[in-house]
Design a protein around this nucleic acid. Structure first.
Ligand code: MN
Ligand code: MN
Ligand code: ZN
Ligand code: ZN
Lengths: 136, 136
DNA sequence: TGCTGTCTTAGAGTTAGTCCAAATTCCATC
DNA sequence: GATGGAATTTGGACTAACTCTAAGACAGCA
């Protein structure tokens, strides 16, 4: 059985052709795509796929805990198949979103937050990829 | 001269009646309002104010460095007159955004971020205000 | 093969925000 | 105090992201 089909079944999602096609991309990408980007990409191999189905499928995947929806960029959500804790870097020039490994940063609570019940802490770093290439 | 008028002049913004009215609210609020919320609020005292002017004014204030635009909630930007570094708590129930003083958290970089030129680091804490009142 | 519920679809609707071109207001100079 | 060009405001048209709707296609089972 195909890997995506198996994943969907494990999360109690009927693996329709459309859902498998969307999952085949969004469950393994490192691109943090928006819904429209997912649609554009999946349509390449599945041209009759409708926009509504992409939104339905992404929302279903989020609800079933297969991917996360991130609020990072202006106006639109992006989706992330990585569920383990990690941070994000936003390239302010290109809009690209990069994963920052969890152990790159330490967020320490120095004072109490009385009356607040914390569910998640999100660190977003904004900046530019510098001109200098990584490996000299 | 009124306080708002003075602030606008100092930032090289012509203090029109509309801009002073918008500024009178958004430059001093602790609410992190969206543009529509600003419009609703300022219209109470200035009923003929147009939506376009609210957007124009908020964008101008951001460009001139009087307020910041935050991407925290789904679908819409919110505005923040506090320019000093601080963090934010989002009440997932009500949507309210609270300021978290800068020295409540320490974000330490444990590893290098090669090839990334950091401009800003934003910490967003999501959760609920717990039922228990702060002062017993 | 037919029945029933699930899934997909096109298109309408909604919301946040920008754009536009006309009307108004501002203000420096006379 | 008039006047003319520039800045500002305005309503409404437009756009983009997303949801909703209701009809049709499809899947799993009898
Ligand atoms: Mn959503
Ligand atoms: Mn904006
Ligand atoms: Zn990620
Ligand atoms: Zn704030």
């Amino acid at each position: 059985m195909e890997r995506v089909t198996k994943l969907l079944r494990e999360h109690h999602i009927q693996p329709s052709a459309q859902r498998v096609a969307v999952g085949g991309y969004v469950l393994f990408t490192e691109e943090h795509p928006s819904a429209e980007q997912v649609w554009e990409r999946v349509k390449e191999n599945f041209p009759w796929l409708s926009r509504a189905t992409v939104y339905n499928t992404l929302n279903l995947f989020v609800k079933k805990g297969l991917i996360r929806e991130l609020i990072i960029t202006e106006g639109k959500s992006v989706f992330d198949p990585r569920l383990d804790p990690h941070h994000h870097f936003v390239d302010e020039e290109s809009g690209d979103i990069l994963d920052i490994p969890f152990d790159t940063l330490e967020v320490r609570r120095l004072k109490d937050l009385p009356g607040l019940d914390i569910h998640e802490t999100q660190v977003i770093i904004r900046g530019r990829r510098s001109a200098a290439p990584a490996g000299v």
